[in-house]
Amino acid sequence: MLTNLYLVRHAHSIYTPDELERPLSEGGFAGAQTVTELLKEENIDYVYSSPYKRAMQTIEGLARYIDKEIHIENDFKERILAEKPVENFTIAITKVWEDDDFSWSGGESNRIAQKRGCRAILQVLESHKGKNVVISTHGNIMVLIMNYFDSSYGFDFWKKLDMPDIYKCSFNEKKLIEVQRIWKNSTL
């Protein structure tokens, strides 16, 4: 009996320094509608989201369509890169992916963020065996979770993600069996 986790990277958002309340952009709302269309035929049993507004907005339409409550899980929030905005994002993100134990001041290392995200994923797998579960989250934490189960998912994979993006991860108990991309967004 397989458990399918549909990991959804949130749709495009309007940048604000307030991570928690950053909303989707106009294009992001269009992307969220596509997420709804792609997932409404997948017989979804449960819907989880990061507490961040953009993640919740990405799957609100789906939750309404299938009449399911969105369960908020704090451990699905994006990794904290640093306490304050970094001067050069590319340099900062590259450094944390080069060394799993490195963290910027006030930020999370890959290892710490991965541990947080995987704790939540393992709880979902335990609680919802044999079910189809949508998890709306963020690029870095999503790839760190996938990397825990298969090391081929890393920094290069993260750089190729779209906003939004969807990966169906099929598990036998807690063993990842297959990953299938069901979203290819080349227009946003």
Rank of each mutant, 00 (worst) to 15 (best):
Q114K: 03
E21H: 15
P17F: 08
I14M: 12
S105P: 01
P51F: 10
E87K: 05
I145C: 06
E60C: 12
A92K: 01
P23Y: 13
P17M: 09
K168E: 08
M142S: 06
S50T: 07
C118N: 11
Y167A: 00
D156F: 01
N185P: 06
F157G: 01
F89T: 02
F89I: 05
A82L: 08
N88V: 03
K168C: 10
L38Y: 09
K84N: 14
E19T: 12
I14R: 14
E87I: 03
N110W: 02
D150F: 01
E78V: 01
K174Q: 10
V8C: 08
L2S: 15
T58E: 05
W158S: 00
R119W: 13
K95R: 00
V47F: 04
L38N: 07
K77W: 09
L188D: 12
R9T: 09
L161I: 07
R119V: 11
E21A: 14
Y65I: 10
L39R: 08
S49E: 05
I177G: 09
A120D: 13
V133T: 11
M1H: 12
R116Q: 08
K68T: 14
A63R: 13
I70N: 09
F149A: 03
L39Q: 08
E83F: 04
L62T: 12
I121V: 15
I121Q: 02
M146V: 10
T137F: 06
F29Q: 13
S105Y: 05
I177R: 13
D156A: 01
W104E: 08
S127Q: 14
Y52S: 10
I141H: 00
I166H: 00
Y153I: 06
I70E: 02
S105E: 15
V86F: 03
V133R: 05
E19Q: 14
V8H: 04
S103W: 02
F155N: 01
C118H: 03
D100F: 00
I112D: 13
L2P: 15
T3F: 05
F76D: 14
L81P: 06
Q33K: 14
F29K: 15
G130D: 11
I80D: 11
R181M: 10
M142N: 04
D156Y: 04
E41W: 13
S170F: 00
E19P: 10
T94L: 03
I135K: 01
P85D: 12
V96W: 02
N147G: 13
A113I: 06
H12W: 03
N147V: 08
K159M: 04
T34G: 01
R79F: 07
N172Y: 09
K184S: 15
N132W: 12
S105L: 06
I44V: 15
I135G: 03
L161C: 02
S151R: 05
D150M: 02
E37C: 04
N43I: 06
W104Y: 09
L176Y: 03
R22L: 06
I112Q: 11
I112R: 02
S152G: 02
E21I: 07
T34S: 06
K184D: 13
E26R: 15
